[in-house]
Amino acid sequence: MSARDTILAAVRAARLSTGDRTDVALPDFQLESRTRETSGDQVARFATAARETAVDVVECTRAELSSWVKHRFPDVRRVVSTTRDVPGTVADQGGPASFADVDLFVCEADFGVAENGAAWLTASRLGERAALFLATDVLVVLSRRAIVGDLHAAYDRIELSSEAFGIFVAGPSKTADIEQSLVIGAHGPKGMTLALVE
């Protein structure tokens, strides 16, 4: 028997030896308290939660984005952008490693989650996703109207059938592996900015 069939047969045998509990129903994921979680000022909740993950949250219009980036990141030279609102200076030069020394990566999030400050990004908007992890700084553009209350609402919106990759990002990379001291900027970005646009 193949390893696959051996394992599946062992699982079936185990089911029988513990009384085959197929009566344990899969619970509905709707939670009663979701109305409370999703009420109130979601934008304010989201901004507070994001700031707790060391994200710099700013509010501006789409039209202002480009000039605002120049002001906020005056020294960056190598910019990779996957949004039309901000021009990039570097294109994909063949292979993800070419993004190794990117200063700033700009992309648009599908939506944000108020309960934890995370932004949902997908492959179709990210392009070569290595830039999201290799860049020194990351700027995520998010519409103020695209904020959901909690992760239950988030997964109601997520559609993965056409995406090879999707990710929640909640802050710049960080570690607390040395005596639980928080260090911002572990292997990935050292800073993250969220631009909430109209």
């Binding site: 939660a49 707790e52 993950t53 993800p96 989650v113 309960e115 934890n116 400050g117 995370a118 070569e128 996703r129 993965l160 995406e163 090879a164 990759f165 999707g166 990710i167 929640f168 990002v169 909640a170 802050g171 710049p172 990379s173 960080k174 607390a176 990935g188």
Partner: peptide
């Protein structure tokens, strides 16, 4: 695990690059 509301990166891989 750590008292965070969410880990920084929660990636969902459905296929290869």
């Amino acid at each position: 695990a750590t008292g965070q509301a969410m880990t920084v990166y929660t990636s969902h891989v459905q296929g290869s690059r």
